[in-house]
Amino acid sequence: MTAIRAIIADDEKALRTYLRSLLSKVWPELIICAEAENGPQALELVEVLQPDIAFLDIRMPGFSGIEVAERMTVPSRVVFITAFDTYAVEAFKKAAVDYLLKPVTEERLRMTVERLKKQINAAEESPDSITQTVKKLLSEIKAGSEPQFLEWIKARQGDEIRLIQVNDIYYFKAEDKYKLIKTLQGEHLIRTSIRRLEESLDQIRFRRVHRGTIVNIGKIKAVHRSLSGRLDISLYELPDKLTVSRSYASFFKQM
């Protein structure tokens, strides 16, 4: 049997590495032939390498994962990766398209892998039907409307005012009269209240973990439960730990 090849496209290296590691565990025969960190790069890799499968993050610089799928001329099977994006997930279900929710779990990935194997082994989908599936997905998404939320924040770092993309923020934390923003590049300060931030942010992507803390769900690596039942969050690429208060624990117990 011909080896199955795939590419992984996500703008965060840690997430690409994590997914590659999980795939090597649940599907060791799969060959990851390339990785992309943005939409245009992902599209180029698909067109040149013609992989059997493309794992595409929904939100990437340049093109979104959905825009990459729309522009593809190669009939690769697509698995979308998203961080609790309700409107997109509903469209995936209606169009019968595979998707993975961040943080990707081994159990969910195994289900996706088994479905992909069955499709490939049974040749369930012809190139034309794969293309039609993607077109159906696009029509479902365009039929809905994506709400507008805060995408950029002006924040102070030392004597400088910086413009920070919301997707790059790991968490917001209240500290006295200021609110701390944590990114890979360091800490930044703003005066906006936690309540005002919560109202301005996409609550599918950002959740309160404490009265004074909001976390970016896409940056969560794992949720740990202590013997006492306390939940602690660990993050990709940062050593910081966030404790979940009881008032906000119900959502994170599902992860």
Rank of each mutant, 00 (worst) to 15 (best):
R5T: 13
Y18E: 12
S24C: 07
S24G: 10
I31D: 06
A34I: 02
A36Q: 11
L43S: 10
E44A: 10
L49T: 11
L49G: 01
P51I: 02
D52Y: 07
I53H: 00
I53S: 02
A54H: 04
L56I: 10
D57F: 03
V79I: 06
I81E: 09
F84D: 09
Y87I: 14
V89C: 10
K93D: 10
A96Q: 14
D98H: 11
D98W: 08
L100W: 06
L101E: 05
E106S: 00
E106K: 02
V113N: 04
L116K: 04
L116R: 12
A122H: 13
P127Y: 00
S129N: 05
T131G: 04
S139D: 12
A143Y: 11
A143L: 15
E146S: 14
E146N: 14
Q148H: 04
L150C: 08
E151G: 03
A155I: 11
D159L: 15
L163S: 14
V166W: 03
N167F: 02
D168K: 02
Y170G: 01
K173T: 01
A174K: 12
E175D: 07
E175F: 08
D176V: 03
K179H: 01
Q185S: 10
E187F: 06
I190D: 02
S193G: 12
I204P: 07
R205D: 08
F206T: 05
G212A: 10
K221R: 13
A222E: 09
H224V: 12
R225A: 14
L227H: 09
G229Y: 13
L231S: 11
I233R: 01
I233W: 06
S234L: 05
R246P: 13
K253M: 10
